[in-house]
Structures are given as structure tokens and as C-alpha cells.
Design a protein around this nucleic acid. Structure first.
Lengths: 195, 195
DNA sequence: TCAATAACTGAACGTCCGTTCACATCAAGG
DNA sequence: CCTTGATGTGAACGGACGTTCAGTTATTGA
């Protein structure tokens, strides 16, 4: 019997989430069956319902946890002083964090349409919160005359799209090291905002 | 009876492709049923098989046609002289063409994993062909000393990700006109490549 | 020792899936 | 006018789907 007050196994639960994460990222939410997830964990399909009320909630919790972890990690990140340092910190953080969690990132960007409207609204709000951190940096730099940006919202979207794109081609142990990729992207962003 | 030698209706066929395109873009390939597509067209599910051998081929042909149209349209595009003009032409073309076909673009970027390995290889090759057009421009500009790019392949991926990202937020009749968006993005790209 | 309970199985539920096919409809060609 | 062939219907196919649940097992606290 479990010691803790929380119900359900503390071993199988995380395994279910990890298996779902891998399979959702690889095949897409709609193409993954509960039986596949269960087989990956090593249990029967019925056992999954000890750890999630349904398939939709399994996806939603994965995405919500991921978005909250992004936000929390950015809070903890050392950012330096001034908009320029902060922008560099953001770019490097975004690339590094996303490369560490390719499956989560893939799901967060591809499976928005698989969420119910209520769940979508929650995730969308968290995503917007993250984008606002970048936009605030750009607006501060613009106000200081350090950046030359015609539209901070547009620049925010452009930079995030560019940085997130790393996940589509970067391979560990490939031609370019992560540090080198970070530096090159940071330089492109710095020049793009006119600094 | 049809005059032309080609089999099948020349009215319903395109309707099937359009309905599939809309639904695949909105809900994802795996989440769309043949019965849904048929209902959108106004026929029974069985009738779809007069126009496609199966669901997978329907997706594949949509993606192949789209990629071929992108390549053909870029061929026709007036490009101007020199790497700088050509890069501007590419950026403006990419944004404009993609905004004109949001459903096709969404499918082309999201449903790669829904393709069989053989079909995936075909689409991937066409996509690479398109990327190579941009990379050639960047390499030419780098050779001429007009651009300052540490890695042309990386810059290619970064620019395409950034430009394609417009589709995720741009809305016709919104705060920014398409022309203004084109100009701002082009300026960001120009500065990002050091020109 | 034994009742309690967490963890899980295996079968079943109603439904929906992609696809097939025998048959109906109907405009046009000879 | 009557055959032909394109165009479609509607029912059916076997299988897979998400989810439920009665029952089995194993481990624990008292």
C-alpha cells in the first residue's frame, strides 16, 4: 500500500506520461491508441484509467505541465542587465530549453487543435504569457533606443518562430554544436532587431 | 457522358480535394473520417473512392501538388538582379504565397508524419528543393561579400521558419497589411544576414 | 492472521473506422 | 430507342477504437 496520501502508483504514473509523450510526439494524438500507450508501459489498456480520467486529459496535462515548466524555467534563468543582455538570455534559453525537450515542444506546437476548446484556452493563455516575456524585452529595448523595431508584436512572433525552428533540424552530435547554434541564432536575432 | 478521355467527374473531383484540404488543415489527417469529407462534398463515403484509391493517397496528392505549385510559382516569380534583390523577392514571395494558401501550408508542415515512408520521401525531396533555392541565394551573397553568414544552411532554416511563422498569427483585415508585414519581415531578414 | 486496499487483468460495451460491392440512376452516342 | 458507361447509393465487411467493470493478485497495517 502506498505510504503517501496521494492515490495511485508513483512509478507507473510517470511511465504513462512518458510513454504518451513519446507516442503523441511521434505519431500525433489522434493516431495513438490507449492500447499502444499501455503496451509501451507494460500494462493493459484499462490500467491507464487509474492515472488519467481519459485520453484528452492525458494530452492536456502533458501540455499544461510543459508550458508551466517553460515559464518557471525562464523565471529562474539568469538574465543579466539591460534589454540586450536579456534578449540574448532569452534566445539562448529558448533554444537550449526546447532542444532539451523535443517531444514536449513538438506536442505543444502540433496538438493545439486536438484540445477541447476549454483546454485550448488554458494552454493558449500560458503560451501568450511566455510570448509576453519576449515582447516586454523588445519593448524595453525599443524605448531605450537600443533596438529599431517597427512592431514589437510582429518581432516577437518572428523571433519565436525562428528560434523554435531549430528543433526541426538540429541533431545532437551533428555538424554544429548547440553552443555554436545558440551563438549564430543570437547574432541573427541581434541584427534583426537592429542592435 | 464525359467528353474528355480522363475518367471521373471534373466537378466532384476538385470538390473532394478542397473538402479534404479544409478538413485535414482544421482537424488533422488522422482525426478526419472519409464520411466527414463525403458529407462536405454532398455524397456518400463510397463515392470518394471514384476519385482516390485511399485516404493516404488523398493526403499525399494534396501535399505533392502544393509543393510542386510552390516550386513552379517561385520559378515564375520576377527576381531582380543580384543576391540582395533575389533575397527580397524570395522573402516577399514566401510570405505572399503562403498567406494565399494557409490550409495547404498547414497540411504540408503538420502532416509529414502521417505519410507512408515512400510518400514522405517524395515530399521531403520537394521541400529540400525549395530550401535549396534560398540557400543558393544566401551562398551567392556570401561569396559576393554582400552577406555575413556563418552557416548558410542554418541561415536557410532560420529564415524559412521565421517567414512561415507569419501564417500562425496573420489575419486578413487585421492590424497590419500584408504589404507592411512583407516589408517588416524583409527588413528583419536583411539585417539578420548582415546586409 | 486477516481485513483492507492499491494495482491490474481480461473481457466486454457500443460505436465508428476505411473500404468494398451489388445495384440504381441517367445523360449521351450510335 | 436502347445500350453504354460515368456517377453515385446504401448496406455491409472485419477490425479497431475509448472506456468500463467485475474479478484477481499482492502487499500492507493492525
Amino acid at each position: 500500500m502506498a505510504r503517501k496520501t496521494g492515490s495511485h502508483s508513483e512509478i507507473t504514473g510517470p511511465l504513462v506520461r512518458k510513454a504518451a509523450q513519446r507516442l503523441f510526439a511521434r505519431k500525433g494524438f489522434a493516431a495513438v491508441t490507449m492500447r499502444e500507450i499501455a503496451a509501451e508501459v507494460g500494462v493493459q489498456a484499462g490500467a491507464l484509467y487509474l492515472y488519467t480520467p481519459d485520453k484528452q486529459t492525458l494530452l492536456f496535462e502533458l501540455m499544461r505541465t510543459h508550458m508551466q515548466e517553460v515559464l518557471a524555467a525562464w523565471e529562474r534563468e539568469p538574465k543579466g542587465e539591460g534589454p540586450l543582455k536579456r534578449l540574448e538570455a532569452f534566445c539562448r534559453f529558448h533554444i537550449r530549453f526546447h532542444l532539451e525537450r523535443p517531444d514536449d515542444v513538438f506536442i505543444a506546437y502540433m496538438e493545439l487543435r486536438s484540445l477541447t476548446p476549454e483546454n485550448f484556452a488554458v494552454i493558449e493563455k500560458l503560451r501568450h504569457e511566455y510570448e509576453d516575456h519576449l515582447e516586454a524585452i523588445l519593448a524595453a529595448g525599443q524605448a531605450d533606443g537600443i533596438f529599431r523595431i517597427p512592431d514589437t508584436r510582429l518581432a516577437t512572433m518572428a523571433i519565436i518562430a525562428m528560434l523554435t525552428g531549430v528543433n526541426t533540424w538540429f541533431r545532437e552530435g551533428g555538424r554544429l554544436s548547440r553552443e555554436r547554434v545558440e551563438r549564430i541564432y543570437w547574432n541573427m536575432v541581434r541584427r534583426a532587431v537592429g542592435a
